[in-house]
Design a protein around this nucleic acid. Sequence first.
DNA 1: GGCAGTATGTCACTCGGTGACATTCGTATC
DNA 2: GATACGAATGTCACCGAGTGACATACTGCC
Lengths: 186, 186
Amino acid sequence: MRTELAELALRMFLDRGFDETTVDDIARAAGMSKRTFFRYFPAKEDVLFGGADDLAAQVADEIRARPAGEDAWECLRVVLGRWERRIHASNEELANLRLIESTPSLQARMQQKRNQLRGQVADALRERSGAGLDAFTADLLTSAAGAVLDAVSREWLRSGGAADRAALIDHAFTLLKPSARGPGRG
Amino acid sequence: MRTELAELALRMFLDRGFDETTVDDIARAAGMSKRTFFRYFPAKEDVLFGGADDLAAQVADEIRARPAGEDAWECLRVVLGRWERRIHASNEELANLRLIESTPSLQARMQQKRNQLRGQVADALRERSGAGLDAFTADLLTSAAGAVLDAVSREWLRSGGAADRAALIDHAFTLLKPSARGPGRG
DNA sequence: GGCAGTATGTCACTCGGTGACATTCGTATC
DNA sequence: GATACGAATGTCACCGAGTGACATACTGCC
């Protein structure tokens, strides 16, 4: 039900634009009232980010499942690389991303979701490595990883979907790999 | 006028909270109508980010003014370090940041502003170094720099304002310094 | 059949934001 | 000093996102 609603809404957004599509329009098209729509989704924007919370938990779990001795940055590269490949594999994702990128309120919601994810990942990263990783470093590394995904998404968008996301991610992670100094090992 | 309005609004936000303070409340307290408020600020959130646009332009200019031969990452570290020190020096900033961090819509607006800044900085970075920096790398470096500032802000907040921001920024920039491989020089 | 619980609809309301139009006010000009 | 003009402001009506309260189905269950 949530899924059907989400698909319908997405189609309407791509067709008319996000701001030009009223919640009432969506609800009517789905044969329900506006009030009911808001019982499925807390906000209009969330219709596009339905799976984000589950995803965050899943990613955090994958992080926790990595070997405790593994370098934190390497761990992020592996897990987020996999995630990225899983999520943005489909063709629809390009239109989807374009929609988000061209709609401020959607961009805002996306960043909020990503920040939640980042927090969970930072926690998972610290759990995984015992007391070997301070809060600041975990924050820094997850923020940097987010920056990588961000820049890659932008480049992918810029290339019209032609860019090799996996290669870009790999390259970016390599470029920003923390230089070993201080208690760097996680 | 904008400034007075901004100060009044901030006081009210800190006092009652952002969501609990109506635009009409602010306008009334300032002796004007709601409509007039919206002629000074395009949105309620913007009352806190009045200077952000000027600041972005200023930062971009500083970037452009750096020597063309300087390493891009070093350039970011210097300019953003200065900026950071200038902005967050005051005591009020702690309460301010706490307010933003605890209010989703303010956080969203802040990130939007920061992303605008990021874009301008990326452009400035590329202008500065002729054709020596591709769009993706500029995006990646500015995103990473943003990640640094983000993580530092969070740590500063976590420490209750006690942390040494300058030292943290320095440390973070050093940690994430791009390893020289490929056409790395900017 | 009656009963509880859940999904839904309806209604009224708040608040952020905007467009249209009237009004005021300071000021330059004749 | 009257006037005309433009900018700032107020008023009003409106839209759309959300929410709370309450009524009303539609289930399964005893």
